[in-house]
């Protein structure tokens, strides 16, 4: 059984078919890249996977159980973490507090009215920050972080509930080349050590070919290729889309 099974996923906005009948799987221990030109439906696909959008048709199963139509917070409780294309963090909190909130939520402690939040799960939060290389900045307000650091913080937040599947929407967008390599190396390391699955979208083909175990290609909402990076690179249809057809 695959970790995540997506069958016939479809979504239309008005008359535009953003995602049409897309089927694929994500396995534990693999870094699966979802690529495609602008407007191919990558983000729409992502937003359906974590419950931000409701699919018009199709089924999504995580660890054999349907998560189709669930709310994001319910999907997260099942063990699916995600990072956003444009980082979403809590700007009025410190770096560590951002992670602490996620840990408090994971442990079902957010309804507590009188305990002091900043004293809870400090060690766990520090450990997560250590893992993404943000430990030295734990005390800083989140609002003053550089963009690359925000991305790493998001990753720490996403790991707080020990997800078995991680969805990363453009994890390296807006980062310097060196940072990109470091972040993807980190993601690859997490996949290896925790044996989780990662699905990520990415524009930078260097990043994709360097790190992806497998890739799937979307174009105009349809899945047009899937397989190992080398095979996809050689696929004539993929070449046509990315390089243009020969006339």
């Amino acid at each position: 059984m695959s970790l995540l099974e997506v069958r016939g996923l479809s979504k239309a906005f008005g008359g535009v078919r953003a995602v049409a009948n897309v089927t694929f799987e994500v396995n534990a221990g693999e870094l699966l890249a979802l690529i495609g030109p602008n407007g191919a439906g990558k983000s729409t696909c992502f937003n359906m996977l974590n419950g931000q959008l409701t699919p018009d048709a199709g089924a999504i199963a995580f660890e054999g159980q349907s998560i189709t139509g669930m709310k994001p917070r319910q999907v997260w409780r099942r063990g699916v973490g995600r990072t956003f294309q444009i980082t979403a963090t809590f700007s009025s909190m410190t770096v560590r507090e951002n992670v602490q909130v996620a840990l408090l939520s994971h442990h079902g402690r957010l309804k507590s009215l009188f305990t002091r939040a900043c004293d809870q799960f400090v060690d766990e939060a520090n450990a997560l920050l250590e893992r993404v290389g943000m430990r030295p900045q734990a005390e800083r307000p989140c609002s003053v972080l550089a963009y690359g650091d925000l991305k790493r913080l998001e990753l720490a937040v996403a790991l707080a509930n020990k997800p078995r599947l991680l969805l990363m929407d453009e994890p390296t967008a807006g980062m310097a080349p060196k940072e990109r390599i470091a972040l993807m190396a980190l993601a690859a390391d997490i996949v290896r050590t925790d044996n989780i699955g990662v699905l990520f979208t990415e524009h930078d083909m260097d990043v994709v070919f360097a790190h992806a175990s497998r890739m799937i290609v979307l174009n105009r909402g349809e899945l047009i290729a899937a397989g190992a990076p080398a095979a996809v690179r050689a696929d004539p249809e993929v070449q046509r889309i990315y390089l243009g057809s020969r006339h």
């Binding site: 997260w76 979403a88 809590f90 909130v101 939520s105 994971h106 937040v157």
Partner: peptide
């Protein structure tokens, strides 16, 4: 904290189970 999380970023708050 949950209250402020919902104000700062409803998107992120929802994505971590709030």
């Amino acid at each position: 904290y949950a209250l402020r999380a919902g104000r700062d970023s409803p998107l992120r708050a929802d994505a971590i189970g709030i």
